[in-house]
């Protein structure tokens, strides 16, 4: 069993969990993910690692409450245990040998962008960061980003914090201002990543994205996470999760991710009702 040693509500729908998992903490690298299961009848969900402490033996994840499983997870407290926690899965992000990079994070994707950004920074790259959120009350990790980047732009969709607008607009401005990036690293909602790639493509700047498709085992067995990249079939769990964003078939990826949307909405509602009943 995997104990929650720290739980911190970063925002009403965004929670940080530090989990006791010494073997994983020893091995984890930026860009890798874990799969967790909350309880015996729980589903297996992949979540990208936010931070890890090999000495303390803990792995940190940041999770947005979006469905039945994340709702159940939120009901757990410090000292409680997760049924399963397995990883680190996928290949680590390549962060070496870059002079100047721009990391673009969207929403809870910033939780994943952070360790990658930090590693770029620690490896001596000049790091620019653009992070986007829907509104002020969803902004996370701003201090962490500030510490490890040479330039930080925070955007909100509604302008309630930072600059109003999309991350792609800020990115285009930085590129047009003459910043020569070796690489753009984008992580966030699929639609955001797609448009970051559309923005960088005309400039020919290599753009890496971190994909989080549907998966079950995370070790290459089920094929649920398959993507079309450059016309070839790739499995995100063993070939990724990082891919050349200019080669990803985005429309397909977006649609495949909605395969179980009806079930998920129904299950979420059911879980919320159950919790409501328990509370009454």
């Amino acid at each position: 069993m995997f104990r929650i040693v720290r739980k911190e509500e970063l925002r009403p729908t965004v929670t940080l969990y530090e989990i006791e998992a010494p073997l994983i903490a020893k091995k984890a690298q930026p860009g890798q993910f874990i799969i967790l299961r909350v309880d015996e009848m729980g589903e297996r969900i992949p979540i990208t690692i936010n931070d890890y402490d090999p000495e303390k033996g803990t792995v940190t994840i940041i999770v947005q409450t979006v469905g039945a499983t994340t709702e159940k997870l939120k009901r757990l407290n410090e000292g409680d245990c997760l049924q399963d926690f397995v990883g680190p899965l996928g290949k680590a992000t390549e962060t070496e040998g870059k002079k100047k990079v721009c990391v673009v994070g969207g929403g809870v994707g910033c939780a994943i962008a952070y360790p990658v950004l930090k590693k770029f920074h620690d490896n001596g790259a000049e790091v620019h960061a653009i992070v986007g959120f829907r509104s002020a009350d969803l902004v996370i990790l701003e201090e962490d980003f500030k510490k490890s980047s040479d330039k930080l732009i925070v955007c909100t969709d509604d302008g309630s914090y930072g600059r109003k607008g999309l991350v792609t607009e800020a990115l285009k401005e930085l590129i047009d201002a003459g910043n020569q990036y070796d690489e753009i690293f984008a992580i966030g909602p699929m639609v955001m990543m797609k448009f970051v790639c559309k923005t960088t493509e005309p400039y020919g700047i290599p753009t890496t994205v971190s994909m989080s498709p549907i998966m079950i085992d995370g070790t290459g067995m089920c094929g649920g996470c398959r993507l079309s990249v450059g016309g070839e079939m790739k499995f995100a769990c063993v070939d990724g999760p990082d891919f050349d964003g200019h080669k990803v078939d985005w429309d397909l990826a977006v649609k495949r991710n909605q395969m179980y949307r009806d079930f998920e909405m129904h299950k979420h509602e059911e879980t919320c009702n159950l919790f409501k009943k328990e509370a009454e």
Partner: peptide, 10 residues
């Protein structure tokens, strides 16, 4: 030992 991916966890 379940939840242990040889090649990744160890």
């Amino acid at each position: 030992a379940t939840d242990t991916v040889v090649g990744r966890t160890i």
